[in-house]
Amino acid sequence: MSDLNDSCACPPNNGISRRNFLRSSTVLASGIAALAASLAPLRELTNYTSMEQFMQKYYREMTPPEMEKVLERIAHEVERQYQIRPHVRDYKPMDGVEFVYCLNLTRCIGCRKCVHACVAENNQSCNPEIQYIRVLKMPHGSLDMEKGDHNYAPSSVPEKGFFYMPVQCQQCKNPPCVKVCPVKATWQEPDGITVIDYDWCIGCRYCEAACPYFARRFNFTRPSIPKERLNPNMSYLGNRPRKQGVMEKCHFCIQRTRAGKYPACLEVCPTGARKFGNILDPNSEVSSILRTKRVFIQLKEEIGTSPRFFYYFDV
């Protein structure tokens, strides 16, 4: 600062003296360097939105060639991050198909295999943990959700005196989550699956608050998926890796079920408690369950959401 006082001694001139120029440019350069150094934390920022993604159209307004471009972008991003080339597709609903899920509460033993098969199939984050299915341990003779416990950890299941009730997205016919979305990033498809456009979601979490089943999950941080567990069979509305700040939830394994396969949670269930199919086909398993079995509940049916997920009993 002392040199500033010296500068006053200089004779005032209307131009810039060589000394003044050098002095002020040195100060300016060190100032800019200091600013750059103080912005160091920005270098750790890697999860930014690309321009293509920012300019992307709404899912339902995209033409097929535009969708092709988007799928290519997603495949490229996944490959860059995981060094695995995925097959990203946009599966469309089939005609004359409405999906329904039935779960046999007599058979479920609460082993939680469905929870983890779902995580592996749908590329859910492992750290922090995101799981679509919660298995509630409930005392016999009650359907009071308040008595449910999802943190049980005995050495062997099932435990005497309890039954187990897995809860996931109920794919409601009258979904409260869709009604509250301010940007229409979530909607119901013709085959009954409520989907989310992860590139359109703004992360306001209204839908999470609106869902009476605690079915929706929010990516508070950047999801981390171990490379060896990445499922390369991906779909746009389904299991492609999500980014920080968007909602996700069960979508009946859209990448499997719209290709005619069973969902992952059904295939892994050791007791065959889970049944899935097309309710519009009178010969499907779910049709015959709803016709012949004691279909006991649609969860919280009194609130009028009309789930496509039915719980039933054997006897």
């Binding site: 069973y262 007791t271 049944k275």
Partner: peptide
């Protein structure tokens, strides 16, 4: 009727086979 027991494969039969497990598989 496919209501009891384990199934895997394709729910839509014209797209692929369904794998039905027998009693003694479980």
């Amino acid at each position: 009727a496919g209501v009891h027991g384990r199934t895997s494969g394709y729910w839509k039969r014209d797209l692929g086979p369904i794998d039905r497990k027998v009693c003694t598989s479980c």
